[in-house]
Amino acid sequence: MTAPATPQTDRWNIWAIAAIITVWFTIILGLIFGHIALSQIAKTGERGRGLALTAVIVGWAGVVAGALIMLFILIFGGLAISANT
């Protein structure tokens, strides 16, 4: 079952533009804006799906990278502390 086609417009989705800009400065806001944009674009057929999708992918990659860095710091920081005692 496929979703009904939405008419294409020449308008750009403002949330997609905001998402691609903010994801480079604040990952969480970029992710939120990107998901909002994808939802609206699916309903309205506005332009900017690529921008929104890029913001979401970059945002989630940043979240994963941040989590891995924190895990690295916790593991090796704990090992360094335990080695000194």
Rank of each mutant, 00 (worst) to 15 (best):
T2Q: 03
T2G: 02
I27Q: 01
A83P: 01
I28N: 06
V56G: 10
I73V: 09
I69F: 08
T44I: 04
F25I: 12
F25L: 08
G34T: 03
L38K: 07
R11V: 07
T85Y: 08
G34D: 00
W24Q: 14
G30Y: 09
T2S: 03
L38A: 02
L51Y: 13
V56L: 14
G34K: 10
E46D: 08
I75Y: 10
L79T: 05
V23M: 06
A3W: 02
I14P: 02
M1A: 14
G30W: 08
T85D: 06
G62A: 06
A55Y: 10
I17F: 15
P4M: 15
A3N: 05
I41G: 04
A80Q: 11
I21N: 05
L74V: 05
I69L: 10
T54C: 13
W12T: 11
I41N: 10
T26W: 15
M70E: 04
A52H: 04
V56T: 13
L71N: 02
G77V: 13
F76P: 00
N84I: 14
W12F: 06
F72M: 13
Q40P: 04
G45W: 01
G77L: 12
N84D: 11
A61N: 01
I73D: 00
I20N: 00
I17R: 14
I28V: 08
W60H: 08
L29M: 11
T22R: 07
V58H: 13
K43D: 12
A19N: 02
I20G: 00
L74A: 15
A42E: 14
A42P: 03
A61L: 09
G78N: 12
R47V: 03
L71T: 08
T22Q: 04
L31C: 07
G34Y: 10
